[in-house]
Design a protein around this nucleic acid. Structure first.
Length: 132
RNA sequence: CAACUGUGCCGGGCAACCGCGGGGGCGAGGACCGAAAGGUCGCUUCCGAGGAAAGUCCGAGCUCCACAGGGCAGGAUGCUGGGUAACGCCCAGCGGGGGCGACCCCAGGGAAAGUGCCACAGAAAAGGAAACGCCCAACGGAACCCGCCCGGGUUUCGCGGCAAAGCUGAAAAGGUGCGGUAAGCGCGCACCAGCGGCCGGGUGACCGGUCGGCUCGGCAAACCCCAUCCGGAGCAAGACCGAAUAGGAGGGAGAUAGGGUGGCCCGCCCUUCCCUCGGGUAGGUCGCUGGAGACGCCGCGGCAACCGGCGUCCUAGAUAGAUGGUUGCCACCCCGUGGAUCGCGAGGUUCCGGGGUACAGAACUCGGCUUAUAGGUACAGUUUUCAA
RNA sequence: GCCGACGUAGCUCAAUCGGUAGAGCAGCUGAAUCGUAAUCAGCAGGUUGUCCGUUCGACUCGGAUCGUCGGCU
């Protein structure tokens, strides 16, 4: 009990800022989400997701080689991470999400990525009521 | 206010807020995640992509595997001398080619070790030749003449002489000129090219001189020969920790349930359960950044590449892979039936608005090469020119 | 990241030792048919991915470059 109180109490300084989001990193997790998750897409992004019973939402990004060379792909990943940083607080349902970039979004700016991502999340009904 | 050549350098800057990766320090009690190995949090401070990080074309370090020694096969390199840990790289030179020039380019050993190829055309494409042709001095014919034989003359010819010219080709058996000849030929001579010997200079590639006999096609980025070098794989190398499941080895349990061996019993083996052990997968940690290191200065060191000495500094270490987002100001470039101003004019200066700022992202680490690259800039030099 | 293989007509593939780049399908024109398909005859279509080099002469030989496709956690 003492220890649990300490754990809950210490990160209160961090709680005021948006919580650090969890990433999906293992190859097996990506594979199972692609295999058994649900999916939605627009012309710039594909969203795969699988709901979970407990815990914060986790996210992974996938930018394939058809999107361009290393510089282009790195830039797209950074913009996707930034977009998720903007939207993560609005997602209230625990789930594993994977965003796959498509060719239509090569020239997107941050605002366009955020708009695309928000649209997909709304269609998947993963956003909280206040933001939906 | 020009056109170039060589060697280099920079690769937008400053500030604010939010966010990311790593090192150090503190919180810290071993709480949380995980079966374990191990990982996770907060605050603070410092650091955080390139000249090519790229292509993976060479050379090394490092790691594992193989290995007595030597040879063959295979591969790479290829003028000379240096530099270097090493190189196919760099520097200096030699030879050849290009440019008015500064300078640039060259896979630049051997064709007399051997094999092979040189299409079409052409007489002939390499120890070899004459169809068209040129010439009758000698040789051998034919016709005519000197009246006939002998002997001779003229013309013409070849089973005679020739390879110069013409023809073909990318390339034709040294080239040009003069002499010589029946016509010709290095047949003779002069110069040039090539070959060989000698002398001199140079470490050497080679250069200069001289003498000689007169002469030998090209292709080795065709096989090959010669000289030198090379064991193979690559950090996804490799080392350590290590579940679940399956399988392996050892020990034990059951008072023998089932199966096998056997005529039957004992025994032995398998199936069941427990414990231990080692191999090893997922996963994790290390390898992982301090090095042929960077920068500065000096040296009667070297033409230079480079070498030596001294001083200062620590300057990315991710692993679905860290540098981003939003702004403000400045720098540069482009656009404008835009405004002002100078000018006859092409146009220049300034203000305003809009847009843009290349090529491109470390993945074990170095030395090179190659390729991509907006714009800017330093030094040295060439040509034309009154002048740059 | 590392290691390999391949680029030829619109498509699928040939081209021996370096000597004029061919075949099938597709396309166009004509014949034949009332018309179409099939058939027959003819035609066009290529800087051999790109750029250098060796050679008298490169699809072929050498080098660079671009692109495509595999293999190794």
């Amino acid at each position: 009990m003492d220890a649990r109180f300490w754990h809950a109490g210490v990160p209160k300084a961090g709680m005021s800022s948006p919580p650090k989001f969890d990433r999906i990193r293992r190859r097996s997790e990506f594979a199972s989400i692609f295999a058994r998750g649900r999916s939605l897409a627009d012309y710039a992004l594909v969203l795969y997701w699988r709901e979970r019973t407990v815990g914060p939402p986790r996210v992974g990004f996938c930018v394939g080689k058809q999107l361009g060379k290393a510089v282009t792909r790195n830039r797209i990943k950074r913009l996707l991470r930034e977009s998720w940083r903007v939207l993560a607080a609005e997602v209230e349902i625990p789930a594993d999400l994977v965003f796959v970039a498509r060719r239509g979004g090569v020239c997107f700016s941050l605002a366009e990525w955020v708009a695309s991502m928000r649209g997909l999340l709304r269609r998947a009904k993963l956003l909280g009521e206040g933001n939906g």
